[in-house]
């Protein structure tokens, strides 16, 4: 009943997993050697927001005017209610309406 995993799948997925884990753990270990004060720290503190923002922007813009509207509404809802799920639904509703 149990399907077996092909050996080439084991190797391909295994290598991909190794690459991904090295990045995750490597980043953490590397950061231990970073300076804890000054300009470098200032940059590291700004990194999470900048990273998440660059992840979001192309996704919104590629959806056109509706995408920007949906993003704006999502931001407004989470800012006023602190409810991430509600904000997500609000954004999805805008896109749903724009496509139907």
């Amino acid at each position: 009943m149990l399907p077996s995993i092909d050996s080439q799948v084991l190797v391909a997925v295994g290598l991909a997993a190794l690459a991904t884990y090295s990045l995750r753990f490597g980043g953490l270990l590397l950061a231990a050697r970073f300076p804890k004060t000054g300009r470098f720290r200032q940059g590291m503190d700004a990194l999470p927001g900048a990273l998440l923002f660059s992840l979001v922007i192309p996704g919104l813009v590629s959806e056109g005017g509706w995408g920007i509207l949906a993003g704006g509404l999502t931001a407004l809802v989470v800012w006023r209610t602190r409810n991430t799920f509600l904000a997500m639904l609000a954004g999805m509703l805008v896109i749903f309406l724009s496509r139907n």
Binding site: G59, A70, W79, T84, M88, M92, I95
Partner: peptide
């Protein structure tokens, strides 16, 4: 059903928190 927009939407909400 805009399911592909779930990710941009949820990450937008999280970015506001940052």
């Amino acid at each position: 059903y805009a399911l592909d927009f779930a990710f941009p939407a949820v990450f937008t909400a999280l970015a506001v928190g940052l």
